[in-house]
């Protein structure tokens, strides 16, 4: 279903447990129904879902780890692997598709030598294709971190990417 159907990574991430605990209690009322939003918050904090954090959530909310794994692999937002410093989200919605999003994607893939869902070795970029970010009139659109780059042309990509360290 998602690009992230790999096993949780074994890399030890430094988890700030007290902060995590307070977040689950204060922001999310210890409520199981908020699981998806808790995972989103963890991903915002660590850039991916570190395994120890997921184990903690499992204990804390009494949700089986298998169910947390199921949720974190079902939804395409989540990544179980560390991602790069800059997230390149290339919109592959229909409007962008008919305006050549595939060419843009291929161009990024060849110039960074990574495929969709992968991270460069220097951890500078992660490439992810997303399904429509709702800026269809500006297609093709590439979002890097929170910045939108609309009506992007293949020969502009290099310059745009270089802006992100």
């Amino acid at each position: 279903m998602s690009n992230a159907n790999t096993q949780p990574t074994g890399v030890e991430e430094e988890i700030h447990y007290l902060e995590l605990d307070q977040m689950i209690e204060k922001e999310f009322n210890n409520d199981k129904e908020n699981l998806i939003m808790i995972l989103q918050a963890i991903q915002r904090r660590y850039n991916y879902l570190p395994r120890p954090a997921l184990s903690y959530v499992s204990e804390k909310l009494s949700i089986p780890y298998s169910r947390i794994y199921e949720v974190s692999t079902f939804y395409s937002t989540f990544s179980l692997e560390p991602r790069g410093r800059n997230i390149i989200s290339i919109c592959t919605g229909t409007a962008c598709h008919v305006r050549g999003a595939d060419r843009i994607k291929e161009h990024i893939e060849t110039s960074l030598k990574i495929k969709d869902g992968e991270t460069t070795e220097d951890k500078r970029y992660t490439l992810e294709s997303v399904r429509c970010i709702g800026c269809c009139s500006l297609g093709p659109v590439v979002k890097i971190n929170e910045d939108m780059h609309g009506r992007i042309a293949t020969d502009e990509i290099k310059n745009v990417l270089n802006q992100y360290e």
Binding site: Q40, F74, R131
Partner: peptide, 22 residues
């Protein structure tokens, strides 16, 4: 907030997702 699943536009799937499930 949803987490990127087109199928969640379907009403029963959306409700499951609201409950914190797949």
């Amino acid at each position: 907030t949803g987490a990127g699943a087109f199928v969640c536009g379907e009403s029963t799937a959306l409700m499951a997702s609201l409950e914190g499930k797949v």
